[in-house]
Amino acid sequence: MATSKADLVKLAATDVNQALTPQEYGPVISAPPFVFLDGTFNTRDLGLVPESPLRANFAFRSGALGGLTDNGKAVLTGKLGVKRVFDLRSPEERTRMPDPVIDGVENTWIQSSKPDSKPDLNKFVAGEGEAGYIDMYLEVIEVYADSWKAILEHVRDRPQEPFLVHCTAGRDRTGVFGGLLLALAGASEDAIATDWQLSRIGTEPVRAMLLEFARKGTDAYGDDQPGFYNLTSLRKSCWGAFANAVEKEYGGFEKFVTDRLGFSQDDLAKIKKNLTNP
C-alpha cells in the first residue's frame, strides 16, 4: 500500500544527522512510489510519485546497479519490464562498479562533456545551501546534456519500452533527470520537489556509505565543516532555487529542451504526450 504524500514528506524532512530506523523506512521503500530492487536502493517509479502526471511503469530512477542480485535483475526485467538503462556516472565510478549485463536490457552510457567539479562547500554555507545547489545543478544540467538528449530521444521514439536512469546515489544527477522529466510531463513544482526529497528516504539503507562518498567528494574534514550539512540535506527551498535558476538561465525546462538540446516543437509535443499517455 502506497504511503500518503503527507507521511512521505514528513519522513523525508527528517534531519540528515538523524538516522531513520529500519522500522521507519522499511515499509516505505517497499511500497509505491518506491520499488524494492534487490541489490540497489533509492529505486522508484516517477509515475507513482504523489500527484505525478507521468504515466506509471515507464520511467524509473535508482542508485547504482552494480550490486543487483539475480532476484533484482528478475524484477527489473519482469515486474518493471525495463528495456534500457541509462548510466549517468563518471568513468571512474563505472570502473569501480560496472553495470551488470542483463539479457534483454540495453545499457547506455555517454561520456559527459567534462568531469563533474567538486562541490564548493563555501557556497553551501549561507541559508539552507541554495547558492551551492544552484551552482552544482546548473553544472549537472550542462555537463550531462548529451545524456538528457539520449533519454528524451528514447521517450520520443520508444514509448513502449520502460527505462531506468541511475547514477551512484540516485540523488543529484538522477534527481535533476527526475525533475526534468516530471516538468516536461506537466508536474507542479511541489510534486517535483517531493520526488527530489524522497531520496532522503531512499538512500537511508546506504546512509553511512553516501556520507563518506560526500566527504571524499568535497574534501570535507568532517561532518561539522560549514556547508557540509546543507549539501547532504535535501530541502525544498534548494530545489526551488535551482528551478528558478533554470527559468532565469534557459527560460525553463521546456526551453532548455528545445533551445539547448535542439528538439523541435513537434519533438517536444511528442515527448510530453509519450510521458503521459501509454
Rank of each mutant, 00 (worst) to 15 (best):
G202T: 00
G186Y: 13
G217M: 06
E212Q: 14
L211V: 05
E249W: 08
D190F: 06
G227N: 14
D190N: 05
A241K: 10
P226C: 09
L231P: 01
Y221L: 01
Y221A: 03
R200I: 01
L198W: 01
G186P: 03
C238L: 04
G240F: 14
E249R: 15
L211Y: 04
E249Y: 01
M209C: 00
D190P: 00
A208T: 08
G186N: 09
K255D: 12
L210M: 12
F242N: 09
T203S: 05
G202P: 03
G252H: 02
F213L: 07
Q197F: 00
W196V: 03
S233L: 06
A193G: 09
V246F: 07
I192M: 12
S199T: 15
E247Y: 02
A193I: 08
A243T: 07
A214K: 05
M209S: 15
G222M: 02
Y250V: 05
L234M: 15
T218H: 09
G227W: 12
Y229I: 07
F253C: 11
E212F: 02
G217L: 03
D223P: 02
S233N: 09
E254P: 00
L234A: 10
G227L: 10
Y250R: 04
K255C: 06
L211M: 13
K255S: 14
K236Q: 15
